[in-house]
Design a protein around this nucleic acid. Structure first.
Lengths: 263, 263
DNA sequence: GACCGCAGTTCCACATATTGAAACTTTGTT
DNA sequence: AACAAAGTTTCAATATGTGGAACTGCGGTC
């Protein structure tokens, strides 16, 4: 049996949700079946179950499935409770206003970076729109900032989980070179993305640490080599740090996940 | 109310997710058990499964569960694909700028109203990113606007599902009086909330209809009796309608769920 | 410091839900 | 009309989930 689906039926159902959501567009039964290793009948029943639970939405006219609205509803609670976003909002607003640059707020989730809020240089965006996006941990400013401050054991697990796909020529290619940089980040408290994820895209990031110095999130200011140098960004670090500390102080006692489980 | 203990293990797991999310704060095992009718061992195993799937997050220090970050990630797809929000955003911005009042965008989900985007009034009434919040269908402006244009059969089902809890003295108390108002709404294309949900809160709403005149969403302008009369709001209806039509035009062919399934 | 009680965890015989091959139905195509 | 492809249903075998009960460990109490 597939080792991929560990947690019984529920695990399979959730994996299926990921699959459908991953398409990014309405999908037919056959398309899902092609990608999934579940037998036809099982897949069929699961899709029905998820649809009847409104985790998926089915368009009878086109015979397609897509993510359901119940997810939005559920995410609302997650957003409010287990995300730094509500607490961080005013701080992000202030920082973004002061710097006039794109600001990201992220948390670690299963070794990956989950963006939970964002401010663009221009328009203020309040919601999920960009929140909920995921990114790699090993080649983003926020990712490295959080990984660096993870306790030994968890960091090891997280590093082992990374794909080390070579997005650009600056991307870390293995846990070793990454770990070396993390040591530096740990001592400086600042991390950079040196075009490691996308060409010309650079950023400074700082971790948001709880009382025990464990990372509960990270913030970054992003720009491009066309507009700024790394040194330019480095000069913004103090502002970032101040904001991160303010958020950390306010988040104290909120019981936010620092980083944890893997199946 | 436990409508949902039908779809096998997956149904139970999702109901449990709702339960945990519903608390709105981190909860202990015992608290969950008190509310849930699942036997201890089953509950325990389910919580573990959901945690290992990152649908829940567990704080080992406090022994509490709360909604997991994977939900935020999943909701991102739902938000982008099956929500009017991305398409409606610029229109909402424009409308909100023009009217300077609180604007809501909502969709119907299982007989309930799901708010998917929002613009606050100029006078900043402190509120959260309320996307993902749910509300009753039978006593909100947007709810009634959508219910009114639902095809016969679906409307009947949806009306039967409402709780008819008497939030205020103006709240509809049964399907009959509601259906009567829906007839009116159908002919005028405009619905009002006359302090039916909360005292002093009033609103005008219009449905967003697809080519076949089925509701794919609704928009409203909300205010309070302290600042506006219903007549004031009624004067905003043309602007609302224009915007709704613009959104509908742009959403054509997007395969959005109009309103459907109940378990 | 022994005792109690409760929250949380594990166990295991039993019941049920899930499986998946295959047959069937519907929909769309030539 | 004939065919193919997609989607739906069936059913016996069996893997999975169930839940009563017994266990563990911890914090409080006398």
């Amino acid at each position: 049996m597939g080792v991929t689906h560990s947690d019984g039926t529920v695990g399979k159902a959730l994996a299926l949700l990921d699959t459908v959501a991953g398409f990014g567009r309405p999908v037919r039964f056959a398309e899902v079946q092609e990608v999934s290793d579940l037998p036809k009948a099982t897949l069929y029943r699961l899709l029905q179950t998820l649809t009847s639970q409104r985790m998926l939405s089915y368009d009878p006219d086109r015979g397609t499935y897509q993510p359901g609205l119940r997810l939005v509803q559920l995410a609302h609670s997650a957003w409010r409770q287990t995300t730094l976003a509500p607490v961080a909002r005013p701080h992000l607003d202030a920082l973004s206003a002061k710097l006039g640059e794109t600001v990201h707020l992220a948390q670690l989730d299963g070794g990956q970076v989950l963006y939970v809020d964002k401010r663009n240089a221009r328009r203020p965006i309040p919601m999920f729109s960009d929140a909920g996006k995921i990114g790699p941990g090993y080649c983003t400013g926020v990712g490295k900032a959080m990984l660096a401050f993870l306790p030994e054991a968890e960091r090891a697990r997280a590093l082992a989980q990374q794909s080390y796909f070579r997005h650009t020529e600056h991307t870390h290619r293995d846990a070793h070179s990454l770990e070396a940089e993390l040591v530096e980040i740990r001592s400086s408290g600042i991390s950079f993305d040196r075009e490691e994820h996308e060409p010309t895209i650079i950023c400074v990031a700082v971790p948001i640490l709880d009382e025990r110095q464990r990372p509960i999130g990270a913030m970054s200011v992003t720009s491009s080599t066309l507009r700024h140098s790394l040194d330019d960004l480095a000069r913004l670090a103090p502002d970032l740090k101040t904001t991160a500390e303010a958020i950390a102080r306010e988040a104290a006692g909120l019981s936010l996940p620092s980083a944890s489980d893997i199946a």
